[in-house]
Amino acid sequence: MRGFASISALSRHFPRSHYVLARVAKSIPVFLAIAVCNFILLKLAPGDAADVLAGEAGSATPEYLAALKSQFGLDQPTWAQLAHYVGRLLRLDLGWSFRNNQGVLALILERLPATLLLMIGALGLAFILGAALGVLASRHVNGALDNLISVVALLFYATPLFLVGLGLIIVFAVHLGWLPTGGLTTVGASYTGLRFAVDVALHLAMPLVTLALFFLALYARLMRASMLEVFNQDYVTTARAKGLSEGRITVRHVLRNAMMPMVTMLGLQVGTLLGGSVVVETVFAWPGIGRLAFEAVMSRDLNLLLGILLICSVVVIMANILVDLAYAWLDPRIELAR
């Protein structure tokens, strides 16, 4: 009863909280289904952590291999391993990374902030800059500016990420020496406060721009198309008949309605970006989830990989809830079901 009362108190202060709680509850089965699929998929791939460790040891005997396997529980039948895994998940225990000799959750939590910083920063930049360029292009349809924006945006979209990254490193780190080549902070320096933030920002600049440039094209083109569509709506003619200027019509009547497809795209790309960051994190030695996942794959660190995939699915599910909230905020016709 007390829990109930506190929920209704919560919903008084945050009218959407009921909806959010319901959505979170509904996503638990989805979350478990994803976990089971991940597990089966990874089990289908040949090789496990014991094989890799034994291989690296060089002179591993079959007995050593068998000992490793039984130590990791890899000698159990698959279904037993799965049951064990799901049981652990329900206790919010993501397991142990045998490779890193560290708890999976701790390992991920250590790396997650760096990836989230990169991801949110890059998506935010691509979204805002893309929206601005899209608006600009739509106001000069088929003109020189429109074509220039399209060409430049598509050029970055078509160029492989690592190439853009390496190009930036050569120009800004090697030749100009303005920015560090990689990493999250300056090695050996122990800055605090503002100095620390500036240090991270300098390290963040290139990986963030590299990722953002890739997604910029999508947002710019989408915004342009969306703006053009909304400009043809009857209510824009109504706005003109009121005597409003084109600038005011764009900002007040068109922009908000043109944002809907952009928000949809944003939600979809949160998932893509977690994958896309593997390349960028590797190029810029960015200590994030992407690189951790890559290392986990190479060393067949199944527990770690499963943990990362799971955390990613949590991020995606949360992003979807946020997108639905944004819909309801942007378009009053959309009402959130209880």
Binding site: Q233, D234, Y235, T237, T238, A239, R240, A241, K242, G243, L244, H253, R256, N257, L330, D331, P332, R333
Partner: peptide, 19 residues
């Protein structure tokens, strides 16, 4: 427009901004 001359249109369903 909208001051000395007002105008109304055929489609009331789409002539108002939904947002």
């Amino acid at each position: 427009r909208g001051d000395r001359i007002g105008m109304i249109f055929q489609e009331p369903m789409t002539s108002l901004n939904p947002a």
